[in-house]
Nucleic acid binder design. Sequence first.
DNA 1: GTAACTGCAAAACTTTTGCAACCAG
DNA 2: CTGGTTGCAAAAGTTTTGCAGTTAC
Lengths: 143, 143
Amino acid sequence: MNDMHEHEHDDIVSRLRDAGLRPTRQRLALADLLFSHGDRHVTAESLYDEALGQGVRVSLATIYNTLNQFTSSGLLREVVVDSGKSYFDTNTEAHQHVFNEDTGAIDDVQLSLDAEELASRIAVPEGHEITGVDVVVRLRRSQ
Amino acid sequence: MNDMHEHEHDDIVSRLRDAGLRPTRQRLALADLLFSHGDRHVTAESLYDEALGQGVRVSLATIYNTLNQFTSSGLLREVVVDSGKSYFDTNTEAHQHVFNEDTGAIDDVQLSLDAEELASRIAVPEGHEITGVDVVVRLRRSQ
DNA sequence: GTAACTGCAAAACTTTTGCAACCAG
DNA sequence: CTGGTTGCAAAAGTTTTGCAGTTAC
């Protein structure tokens, strides 16, 4: 296989099983890329290129499936910063984002604002619930 | 033409000229739809359908051109809430949004949070500037 | 008259889907 | 085995583009 350590491999297997997903070759390889290198922000295309670059044989359709499945099961969080492309964040904790509109790069920030408190100021319609409070600071090169 | 009052028509003409845009038939009609009915949130498709419904003859390509030109010149503000579709807001003042993920409806809210203050907590890279601080509260039907 | 603008169709992108082949348990 | 998964190609949805024809000034 590759140089994944045995216990890391087992961790990833458990993580997938806990999420109700079979630990297939593709999902293991993608989970390893996503979760074994700190907090990351990827797009389908960037993860696809990275996988191919690492010699992981996987189709783009599977990348999309996997990113969506990981997001549904709480392993990833989708970050909406661009109206033409989906970004996914391996950090699922409450935090905010800085988006560089020139490069498409996303950074995490902790603005220590209370999403609960913000949410409490919203008049939530009957039978609805707040699924998230997203904060994005947009950056661009000056001039 | 239609039942636009003369002075309203003139207002719109000035507004377009001030933005450096020729007041063409299409732009006048779209500006009227957008700015004569309070604060609105539209997509290219929704504005296109509305225009056709009102008997305004305009192509979808022109809707896209117009929305982008209006946004560039500050007449509209783009609201990024969906990674597959662009929304435009006629309210260009500082405010936040509530997005209903089931219906795609957007509402304005004033959370009276200080974007300047939030922005001041960000480490802005050399030669870059903050172009906006976006806050979106996401809603979904419970269950 | 001329540069700006518009419409149409085609192209470019991102994402989803249908289905046969494949694989984990 | 058998249902979940994958890959491929095709389709779907949104947005942009190229360019001939039109319009504002």
